[in-house]
Simulated scan of single mutants.
Amino acid sequence: MLVIEAKLKGTQAQYSKLDEAIRTGQFIRNTCLRYWEDNKGVTRNDLQKLCALLAKNKQTPWAKKLNSQARQAHADRAWSAIQRFYQNCRLGRPGKKGYPRYKKFSRSVEYKNSGWKLSASRRQITFTDGFQVGMMDLWSSRDLVWYSEKQISRVRVIRRADGYYAQFLVDWNRREEHDFQGKMTGIDLGLKEFYTDSDGNTVDNPRYLRKSEGRLKMLQRRVSKKQVLGKKQSKRYHKCRSSLAKEHLKVSRQREDKARKEALAL
């Protein structure tokens, strides 16, 4: 499997509709979890049937707007959490068993084989479910033109601090060929150095979080000063909160980029 990520560019109205789709997916998952708690002997098929009932229920008209396979995907998320809890109980693992929890701040919605359509150039994607998001541009350094829509098994829309992203799960056998020289090298990850190999070579730890601590503290103080308990938060508060989230996202991406580059260099 191969995951290709592209940034979604659209209007503010389209972003608002994506937020509605994300909240609807969260509602489906939490409803399935509540149904499992209130009834005994609930199976995965029962949760799939519950999705159809929610779409037909006049009291929840927003559930029908979400694509049917997307509703099933969120029911599968709830069932995965339930199965993980059952497995931990059967194995008798010490500590907490991971009881399924309700989601409060979901940031993604997942589509399967329907509810979306790529353009011929693979530069735009159109969401065709009831939320009527419409066509959005795809910004990515990796080209999707080499893959057909049949190879894309799932599309996940993710909301991050700096915008909205679409992840494409592509059915592709990835092969990386190396010219084996008959020599093996062991590595030891550490805190002072990023890693040390068996030959004594070391790679310095960039310490991205340590270098960004000053700015993170400043942004956190701004958020705390503008927060008013028990009242609706101001626009300045949300602006500062967004800046803080972007800084954390930057550090996370720096760490991931460093780890990937060093792993490929070995």
Results as ranks from 00 to 15, higher is better:
119 S>R: 01
122 R>A: 07
113 N>D: 10
147 Y>S: 08
141 S>E: 14
103 K>H: 07
111 Y>S: 02
113 N>F: 09
125 I>A: 09
131 F>E: 04
131 F>G: 04
109 V>H: 00
126 T>H: 07
135 M>H: 01
139 W>T: 15
131 F>S: 04
110 E>C: 09
128 T>Y: 10
101 R>P: 06
132 Q>V: 15
114 S>I: 01
120 A>Q: 10
107 R>T: 04
115 G>P: 03
142 R>C: 13
141 S>F: 14
128 T>F: 10
136 M>P: 00
144 L>H: 05
124 Q>G: 03
151 Q>W: 07
92 G>L: 12
87 Q>H: 14
104 K>E: 09
152 I>P: 01
119 S>G: 02
150 K>M: 05
97 K>P: 07
136 M>H: 02
149 E>R: 09
121 S>P: 05
109 V>N: 03
143 D>H: 07
124 Q>N: 11
135 M>I: 12
89 C>T: 12
103 K>E: 11
90 R>L: 11
128 T>P: 04
130 G>A: 08
121 S>C: 04
107 R>M: 03
88 N>V: 04
157 V>G: 00
137 D>K: 15
109 V>M: 03
128 T>H: 08
102 Y>Q: 08
92 G>Y: 13
106 S>V: 02
111 Y>A: 02
94 P>Q: 11
95 G>D: 05
102 Y>D: 08
138 L>Q: 11
129 D>T: 02
94 P>F: 10
98 G>E: 10
92 G>D: 12
142 R>F: 12
94 P>A: 11
129 D>L: 06
154 R>Y: 11
117 K>I: 02
105 F>Y: 14
127 F>D: 06
130 G>S: 03
127 F>C: 05
151 Q>N: 05
147 Y>I: 11
118 L>M: 03
105 F>S: 12
110 E>I: 07
129 D>Q: 00
108 S>Q: 08
157 V>A: 02
149 E>F: 02
93 R>P: 01
102 Y>N: 08
90 R>G: 00
138 L>T: 11
89 C>L: 15
118 L>W: 00
155 V>S: 03
140 S>N: 05
110 E>A: 06
100 P>Q: 06
140 S>C: 10
145 V>C: 13
116 W>A: 03
113 N>T: 13
111 Y>R: 08
129 D>Y: 03
142 R>P: 09
111 Y>V: 04
103 K>V: 10
146 W>R: 15
147 Y>W: 15
138 L>G: 09
87 Q>C: 10
147 Y>G: 07
118 L>A: 05
108 S>M: 00
158 I>T: 11
128 T>K: 10
152 I>S: 01
116 W>P: 02
111 Y>Q: 00
94 P>N: 08
124 Q>S: 11
97 K>R: 15
158 I>P: 05
153 S>D: 10
126 T>R: 10
105 F>E: 13
115 G>K: 02
102 Y>E: 03
98 G>I: 07
113 N>C: 11
126 T>C: 09
106 S>Q: 04
133 V>T: 13
114 S>G: 01
151 Q>L: 12
93 R>C: 09
87 Q>D: 13
123 R>G: 11
148 S>F: 12
102 Y>G: 07
98 G>C: 05
121 S>D: 14
132 Q>S: 15
154 R>W: 05
148 S>T: 15
120 A>I: 08
131 F>L: 01
106 S>N: 07
143 D>V: 07
112 K>C: 00
106 S>C: 04
124 Q>M: 09
91 L>Y: 13
149 E>K: 06
103 K>Y: 05
102 Y>S: 08
114 S>F: 00
114 S>K: 01
88 N>A: 12
112 K>S: 08
